[in-house]
Amino acid sequence: MEYLINLAILFGIYSMLALSLNMLIGMGGLVSLAQAAFYGIGAYATAIGMTSLGLGFFTTIILGIVVNAILAFVVGKILARFQGDYYAIVSAGLSIIVFSILQNWKSVTHGPLGIFGIGKPEIGSYTFYSNTAFLGLVMVFTVAFYMLYQWINKSSFGRVLKALREDEHLTHVMGYKTKQYKSVIFVLSAALSGIAGAFFASYIAFIDPSSFQLKEGIFLFTIIIVGGLSSAIGSVVGALILISLPEVLRFVGLPYETAAQLQQMIYGAMLLLMMIFKPQGLFGKYRM
């Protein structure tokens, strides 16, 4: 049971990440691979804040949001000039830069040795020390993310984003400041990723740059592609599948000499089949 609770915590964290990324890609059509960078900044804000500055968990969440928002605002201004593939490439560049900073700014991030001993969230005198309590907190935030997604999706802001996704030029001609819309959703998505990062750091209690590489951004992208673009439920289901599938495969009675390799092959094959039969994702409302 305890194992499932841990799995559920990870599922919750990745659901938050997928929802924040789907706002950007699914709603806005802005293919960003920088999500892992903002996720990492949020995680490091919590790790450094809690272990070096003595801040509380929730204060470090705010710190992560602020740092991410500022960075995303600056980078968003640059990214707003790009569209389609170029947007993806430039965002991938940001991911690589952030990873490089995390890896090399050793006096602050401890480089590849990482930061350990990250504490659990506290409210007053209550510490979310048990995994069940931690899961409860993660789920509260996951539901809040879900509701925020749905609210934005139905709002006029969300409708403009979807129009922008379908035809940016036309949306601009209709009088909407498309660059501003792109910047706002980029900042919002980055800030939300930082929250997920904070939970990840507190849950794992140890972080190093390897968890926030470009490949993590591609993994998050895969989650929303499998679940379906522009769909809140798709983000959550995508996270459920991609997080739990490799864990489920641990229980398949494969011969131990080749189990690890076979598990990865099965995992890859299942994703491939899913894409063949459901190219728009399981709950996708929009196809790239």
């Binding site: 305890e2 794992i204 390897s210 490799p246 864990e247 641990r250 189990a259």
Partner: peptide
């Protein structure tokens, strides 16, 4: 035997599995 994939996250999940299951 469990595959750590040399990844802290995968290792953490595998540890939970080894201990709890």
């Amino acid at each position: 035997w469990e595959d750590s994939q040399s990844s802290p996250v995968r290792a953490a999940m595998a540890t939970h599995k080894l201990i709890d299951y």
